[in-house]
Structure formats: C-alpha cells, structure tokens
Design a protein around this nucleic acid. Structure first.
Length: 588
RNA sequence: GCGCUCGUAGUCUAAUGGAUAGAACGAAGGCCUCCGACGCCUUUAAUGCAGGUUCGAUUCCUGUCGGGCGCACCA
C-alpha cells in the first residue's frame, strides 16, 4: 500500500497543479517543527524563482486549493512560504487500520533480488574479540533488513582460513610436536580422527607464532613455506589444517549462536582455492594481469582518479595467493553459483582501499556481471571509554566471550531484584536484555563512525538504550495480558480509531512512518534508522501511557481503540527489534 | 609526501539543502493511595575556524586547523 507520506505528497501535488503550478513541487516531509505542525511542504519556496512570484503567494494559492481536503485537517502558510500541514484524524485512523491488517504493515516490496552479505570474517585459530562483534551485529541486522524487504539474503561468514596465519599455526605446531604424523612425509596411513590440540591451545599458539615470526626470520620463512605447501595441497598439512578448522569453527558457532547471528554459508578463503588458478589464467589470457617486480598485478587506476591508485596484486612473486586473490576468486564463484544482484561486504572501514581495488579489478576482468551492485559498508573502530581502541585492563585484547559473560552477569543481578522472577527465568532474561543492550548500543550509531563501547553505559541501561525499548515492550505486553485476563477481547482483533488526544496522535503518526523508515533503512543499509525510529515510537508510547489511564477508561469504545493501538505498537516494535536481531522477554 | 575520513552541549549522539539544530548521559527541580518510576514532565548547554554557492548550509564547494585511518608482495 502507498505510504502515508506519499499520499500526502500526491494530495499536495494535485493542489499545486490545481493552482497552476508544477505538481512536482508538492513534496511533503515530516515537520521539523512538531510544535507548529505535523507535516510540511517547502515547494512554494523552490517555485518562487520559476514563477517570479513571492513564495507565500504561491503557498496561498495552493492552500486555497486544499480548502476542502479530506486528508488534511489544517493547512496554513507561514513566513517565507512554508506550508504547514496537519493530517485529518479519521483519515489517519483509517490509514493505521489498513496498516494493522496488511502484511508487513503495508510496506511496499519490489521484485525480490538476491543479495549476498559477507560479514563476520573471523580468522580461524584466533579467538573472537570485540572487533568481530561489530561485523556480526551490523551484518546480521543488514541481512535481516534485506530479508524483511522481501529479498533473498545469503549470509556468508567468509572465514579467514587460508592465509599466512595458517602457516604460522602449523609451523608452531610442528615446533612443539615434531613427531606428529602430519609432518612425516613418509607417512601414508590414515591420520588420527582426534585433533592434537584444543581451542585453548590454538588461541595461545597463534599470537605466540605471530610474535615469533616478527623476530625470527628463519621461522617466518618456514611459515611462508608451510602456507605455500598447504595451498598446494600437501596431504599431511591439509589434514592438520582440517583439524584446526573443525576445532575453531565449532567454537565459533557457539559464540555466534549466543549473539543470535546466523550464517547461511560457512565458506572461507580456502573454499575458492581451486578456483584461483583458472581465474588467474584467464586474467593473463585476457591481458589484464601482468608481471611487475615479479608479482602478478592488475591495473585498477582510472583517469578520473584524484590520486594514484596502486595496482591490485593477484599473486606474490613466490606465486602465493593473497587476500585480494581469494576475494576476487570468491566474487567469481558467487557470480557463477548465485547470480546475485548485489554483494554487500561488512568489514572494518580501514579495508576501504582494498575493496575499491577488488571491485574495480572484478569489473575490469569481467568476474561479475555489469549490473551486479558491489557495496562495502565500512564500520569504525570499537573504542573504550577513554576513546582509545578497546582493551582489557591489562592492555590485552578482550575476548568476545568474556565481554558477553561479564555483561550477562551484571544484567542477571538487576533482573534478580524483581522477586517475582525465578532464578532460571532471570538468567534467560538477563541474556536477552544484555544482547539488546549490546546490539542496540552498536546499531544506534552510524556504522561508519568509531564507537565507544562503554560497559558502564551498557549495564546502566537508562535513556536511549536497548533495555529501554525492551522495557516499553514489556510494559505493553503487561497491559495487554491484563486486559485479556480481565475479560477483554483479543487485542489483535480490535480496530484502531481516531485519536482523542495529542500524545495519542503523536504515537499514531510515528507508527504510520514505519514503511517509509524501513524502506530507507534498506536503501541505505542503515540499521541506526530503525533504532532512531523505535526510540521515537517508544517515547511517544510512554508519553501516551502517562497521559491516559487505559485499563480503567470508562468509555468501552475508547478503551478498545486504545488497546488496538497498543497491540499495533507492540507488533511494530517487536518487528523492528527482530530485524535488529534481538527479542523482548515477557517480563524483566 | 599522497589520499580517505571525521570535527555538533561537560560527555555521547541525530538531522533526503529548510523554520527556534533533535535526543541521551551528567547537573538542577517536580511526578508513584492509580495499567510496571529501567518510566513521565520541566530547566541547563552545541554545528572547530575563514570564505564561497543558495531565497535558505550541520549538510554542497574552497581554504585552514585538529583527530582517526590507509598507501602493492599481512589479512
């Protein structure tokens, strides 16, 4: 169904036309000054030049044409030429009633597209830390936004499972357990089914090996060699590598599950290893790739560039693949398997140049169809309360698991202060509230900005926070269940009515903006729009709640339309937080 | 050096080129015999600086100062 703002714009457009002006000047927007009006149209000012007429005169003509509008209850012309608008109460009620009964609250959906989302991007053998949180949380939200819009969304975790880090881990394992059959070239039997290490071992090995490689040249060379041997398919190393993947991935799955983050594909850089030779060969044949200082590169500079863009490196001079290579091969593979309309990468914004090069190289070499949209959503660094990159007290990297369990236990303490809630429920509720706090805290900021991860702020949860949103939903749930328990009709069957007060109308107006807001969040890949929206709805609801006694209202018709409004508010809020990737308990 | 990016109340953060820049935290005050006070209602305080485009600029352009980041054999 048509969005309210578009209906209003059409109505204004007709009025402009009726008054003899261009209908395209009738664009209506939500008022910047809610104290003056609900909606506004600034078209008269844009038209002043074109018609050589004072803006307010144009506005007056248009207002006159709207004198008997069924859509607007008030049209007034102000100062230079603003047209201030209020929407008709019963028209608004009719609109919300239509929203209430339509699928997805009447949001318009276009022809479904296929969108691949590349997010998460953890490295195997390295513990997840706060940096991984952003990619997971933002990526999951964007995936759900895309899916809600009606598109097919495929989330791919894109594991870092193929680079030098694998060579480093293998080299260190060899150092510690040289007698393992994986390192014995003469060994031809079956390799053990059990891995010779635990997750904890891996997590300790990687940083150790990484540090050592920076000081020990010979060690570094062996790591490079092992990386190369692995990529070439050396049997023992592959078997050992598979153990590393298995151990690491099962640990990751548990972590991501705790965050309500789900991937459709658990592919990684290694997935496209066999695709690389063919792709590279074709790039050479087509004349795009050439040797430069021993390395194979593709030029990606364009004439319109304001700076020199370095060429995109495909193979190192030792013939090994790079990050760029696997990304290009992954694009090649995705194009062939899924024919996506769009691929969205959600990574740290520092990788912007990398993706710029990859996208250009992919287009230049024809790896993706021309109409495929490639988009990189770069997010900012996670900083601590001091504004510097987030660290533990002793300066180490904070593990994601530790972080979450800390916040969970802080939340559990709060929930336990409600004596009605049994211990078991308190633990579950605490994790729901904690997740809302973490996700909302992240998503409510623009992704591209650095963001401050302030544990104090998250555990206090007052004001513009996830728990505030949950609290509002819980409050509505509580009223509705009491209403039904006391013999009221099923809340979802009641009809929305015209507002009888200011705060009620404000709530209704904010609900009416749902479809447009969701569309906007989709186009801009901007979860923070949804956060801003639900915060506004929650605020408007709470003001309405404090202004009216709902359950004890004497007039049954009024009581029922209020219950209907509450039910709609609840459904919209729940839909929004589901898209953001968290949920509300029944009580907290 | 080249390039990208961000500068908004004490802190944190929002604003398809529109009116008196919107919130949150903090600070000051008020509201529970009444549907959940993790709430509601007041008050306080901000666009780094200088130009330009425009009827109108936080937004677009130029310069400048300040922060963050990136610049081919890591990922």
């Amino acid at each position: 169904m048509q969005q309210l703002i578009d209906i209003l714009t059409d109505e204004m457009g007709k009025a402009f036309a009726a008054a003899g002006y261009d209908a395209s000047m009738g664009k209506v927007t939500v008022s910047q000054r809610p104290d003056l009006c609900e909606f506004q149209c600034n078209g008269a000012m844009a038209g002043a030049k074109q018609y050589h007429k004072a803006p307010f005169m144009i506005a007056d003509d248009v207002a006159a044409a709207l004198a008997d509008s069924a859509v607007f209850s008030s049209v007034s012309v102000v100062k230079p030429g603003f047209i201030n608008l209020d929407v008709n109460d019963s028209f608004l009620a009719g609109y919300l009633e239509a929203m209430r009964t339509e699928d997805k609250f009447g949001m318009e959906t276009s022809a479904p597209r296929c969108v691949i989302l590349d997010y998460g991007g953890p490295n195997v053998a390295k513990p997840l830390h706060v940096g991984h949180l952003r990619s997971a949380v933002i990526g999951e939200a964007i995936k759900r936004i895309v899916r809600y819009h009606g598109d097919k969304a495929i989330g791919d975790i894109h594991l870092g499972d193929w680079g030098l880090q694998m060579g480093l881990v293998i080299t260190e394992l060899q150092e510690r357990q040289p007698d393992l059959p994986y390192f014995d070239d003469a060994y031809t039997g079956e390799y053990p089914a059990e891995p010779p290490f635990t997750v904890a071992d891996l997590e300790e090995i990687y940083p150790f090996a990484s540090a050592r490689s920076k000081e020990d040249k010979e060690y570094y060379a062996r790591a490079l060699e092992n990386t190369h041997l692995l990529q070439e398919g050396k049997r023992g190393l592959r078997a050992l590598w598979q153990h590393i993947i298995n151990v690491s991935v099962s640990d990751m799955k548990r972590n991501y599950q705790n965050l309500a983050v789900e991937f459709d594909l658990w592919n990684g850089e290694s997935t496209v290893n066999d695709v690389i030779p063919g792709m590279v060969e074709k790039m050479k044949e087509d004349g795009f790739a050439y040797l430069s200082d021993g390395a194979l590169v593709v030029d990606v500079a364009e004439e319109t560039d304001t700076k020199e863009l370095p060429p995109c490196m495909i193979l190192k001079s030792d013939g090994a693949a790079l990050y760029t290579t696997t990304d290009l091969a992954t694009l090649d593979e995705r194009e062939k398997l899924y024919h996506p309309d769009e691929i969205i990468y959600i990574t740290d914004k520092r990788q912007e140049l990398h993706f710029k090069q990859v996208f250009r190289a992919a287009r230049k070499c024809g790896l993706v169809a021309e109409n495929v949209k490639l988009r990189h959503i770069g997010f900012g660094t996670v900083n601590g309360a001091d504004g510097k990159p987030f660290k533990t007290r002793d300066g180490g990297v904070m593990r994601l698991e530790t972080l979450i369990s800390d916040i969970n236990s802080a939340m559990a303490e709060k929930i336990r202060s409600n004596p009605d809630i049994p211990e078991e429920e308190a633990v579950k509720t605490a994790s729901q509230v904690a997740l809302a706090a973490i996700k909302y805290g992240d998503l409510s900021n623009q992704a591209s900005k650095d963001y401050i991860f302030d544990i104090e702020k998250f555990t206090s949860f007052e004001g513009n926070t996830g728990p505030y949103i949950l609290y509002t939903i819980v409050r509505i749930k509580s009223i509705l269940s009491r209403y039904e328990k006391e013999g009221g009709k099923a809340a979802d069957t009641l009809m929305v009515g015209a507002p009888s007060g200011e705060s009620e109308k404000a709530l209704m107006l904010s609900l009416s903006a749902f479809g447009g807001m969701m569309q906007n969040a989709y186009e801009e890949c901007a979860p923070h729009r949804i956060c801003a929206y639900i915060y506004e709805v929650a605020n408007n609801f709470n003001s309405f709640y404090h202004a009216n006694r709902i359950l004890t209202e004497e007039d049954p018709a009024r009581r029922e339309k209020w219950i209907a409004l509450l039910a709609l508010t609840k459904r919209i809020l729940e839909t929004c937080i589901d898209v953001l990737g968290f949920e509300a308990p029944d009580r907290m």
